[in-house]
Write a protein that binds this DNA or RNA. Sequence first.
DNA 1: ACCGTATTAAACCTTTTGGTTAAGTAACCG
DNA 2: CGGTTACTTAACCAAAAGGTTTAATACGGT
Lengths: 129, 129
Amino acid sequence: MTSDHLSNTFAALADPTRRAILAKLASGEASVTQLAEPFEMSMPAISKHLKVLERAGLIARGREAQWRPCRLEPAPLKQVAGWVEHYRQFWEQSFDRLEDYLRELKTNESRNHESRFKERKNAGKQRKK
Amino acid sequence: MTSDHLSNTFAALADPTRRAILAKLASGEASVTQLAEPFEMSMPAISKHLKVLERAGLIARGREAQWRPCRLEPAPLKQVAGWVEHYRQFWEQSFDRLEDYLRELKTNESRNHESRFKERKNAGKQRKK
DNA sequence: ACCGTATTAAACCTTTTGGTTAAGTAACCG
DNA sequence: CGGTTACTTAACCAAAAGGTTTAATACGGT
């Protein structure tokens, strides 16, 4: 357990069963048995998945007689959204960048082609600890 | 190797070293040595991290003499953003939902209380509280 | 007090992950 | 050519992940 919140969240989301559980919880609370129903998996396996989701803060569990109702806790998802938002420019500008690339091809196709990495060679050589 | 694209993406993101690599690539292409520089980790370890990122489609690698320049590939990040967007309502409406809950408590506290779990089994049991 | 239902815990197994060191490949450079 | 630089592959290891089966716990109904 990384004790790094975002890593725990991503790790919890890196499993289709757990994401399906979250999707189901998006339409309301559910008991463990209800959540387990779509899967061909033993109950303890589901129980473990729920524990992973709980440790990541993605769900909270209550007590209701012998049932343990689960509900979605959106805070870590908000954090994920915030993290990925930093990269939005990269997919929104990708078409522009394709255009840039095509334009560069056109203007450079006869010149010799020494574009992007030549300054890095020198930098690497200078650095010598 | 899940062959599930989104799972691979989340798994790749569930490591602080790999996220730091992506952050660095956000400011431009970089060689493996440059990417490795901030970490107290062997080169093969970095190489493995890059392979994970590459298999997830989060980076692409070129060839430039003896360097292997890496660049960010935003498509999977876009997919993540799309996935998490489905849950936006849950963190934006959380205050409203608290209000809903309080209102529900007020109006339901004398009626019998079969709201959330009634479809499960026998609704006739009375909750004590 | 007992039985059934819901759920978790324990013990175990296999595969994956994340790191290591040591060796291999590939390109440049003098 | 031979050496240096940049990087990957191989072999190995410990720990974590994801599943199993069996057993334990908690509660409600009769």
